[in-house]
């Protein structure tokens, strides 16, 4: 049944070349993952795109007898100030917590850890990691008690320094959720850069030192160029991750007060589930999907440049 020679394999009387066989086995090995991705990513996404063109609702006459209404949902979406508000809020949230926060702090921590001693590396790295592994909802409760107006520790610290108590979740809801997201997400960036920095051979730095390069020059001309793809990867991953945040913000502020911390995820939830307009909510999530896909394409584009440059 199975005959093997050096160039091809004979299976059930069919002559199959090694090259084809490896392609075939690749496909077979990818099958389980492919099936899962299709079932849980591709199909739901396609379904969401489809019903974004309908007036389907979760309840009421349009729940079962919905009809295609063309671009109506999208027209309504782009005319809704609430949607633009949520988009704007999301961009501030992403810029503040992903770029200024997680990226800058995570990168700095990774540099710090590289040159720090074993003890401080353990303490700093460990505590940053801890924030990352804590479940989202637990993090919300921790921060709710920190930012609590009456007796939260943030206000207790302010009082200790003779400053006034702040109404964190009322007067600066966006800043509050940005801080929480930085706290939670920094570990990811730190880990990514720690790994990238470890991968740079010490010999490069030694050689540069011998040539008289300063510490800044070594960073500028050795470290940065070697981790530039990690920077890009990290930047895009945390941007997409932050853009998709929902649970933390929903539990923390509910998008309020009066929509001031309503990021796009919360906007979608309100429309699709609270207002039961699943078709309209899907239209908003398709816009979100397009933004995320664009980011992903940018990333793929750059990594392809890297591969072809290496080849």
């Amino acid at each position: 049944m199975l005959r093997i020679n050096t160039r091809s394999v004979q299976i059930l009387g069919q002559q199959i070349s090694h090259r084809r066989l490896s392609e075939l086995s690749l496909l077979i090995f990818m099958m389980p993952a492919l099936v899962l991705v299709i079932a849980f990513v591709i199909v739901p996404a396609a379904w969401a795109i489809l019903i974004s063109f309908t007036n389907q609702s979760l309840i009421g006459p349009n729940a079962r007898n919905f009809s295609f209404i063309g671009l109506e949902n999208y027209v309504r979406l782009f005319n809704d100030p609430g949607f633009w508000n949520s988009l704007g809020t999301s961009f501030i949230f992403v810029f503040g917590s992903a770029f200024l926060g997680q990226f800058v702090i995570g990168f700095s921590l990774a540099l710090l850890l590289k040159y720090a001693g074993v003890l401080s590396r353990g303490i700093v790295g460990g505590s940053v990691l801890l924030a990352w592994v804590i479940p989202e909802i637990v993090a919300v409760y921790i921060w709710a008690s920190v930012l609590n107006f009456q007796s939260g520790s943030a206000n207790q610290i302010l009082l200790a320094f003779g400053l006034e108590k702040q109404r964190w979740l009322i007067d600066m809801p966006l800043l509050s959720i940005i801080i929480v997201n930085i706290w939670r997400g920094t570990a990811f960036t730190m880990l990514l850069f720690s790994a990238a920095l470890e991968a740079i051979p010490d010999t490069l730095y030694d050689a540069a030192s011998v040539d008289g390069a300063s510490r800044w020059e070594r960073f500028r001309y050795i470290t940065l160029p070697l981790i530039r793809y990690t920077i890009l990867l990290d930047f895009i991953l945390i941007t997409m991750g932050t853009f998709s945040v929902f649970g933390m913000v929903f539990a923390m502020t509910g998008g309020g007060p009066l929509g001031r911390s309503e990021i796009i995820g919360v906007y979608i939830y309100r429309n699709a589930f609270e207002y039961r307009e699943i078709g309209y909510g899907s239209a908003a999530s398709v816009v979100m999907l397009i933004i995320n896909l664009t980011l992903a394409l940018v990333y793929l584009r750059f990594t392809r440049v890297e591969w072809s440059a290496e080849a």
């Binding site: 109404r167 979740l169 009322i170």
Partner: peptide, 14 residues
Amino acid sequence: SAAEPFMEPEPWVF
């Protein structure tokens, strides 16, 4: 009455 607890998670607990 105090507004702040109403704007924090789970005001009924407070």
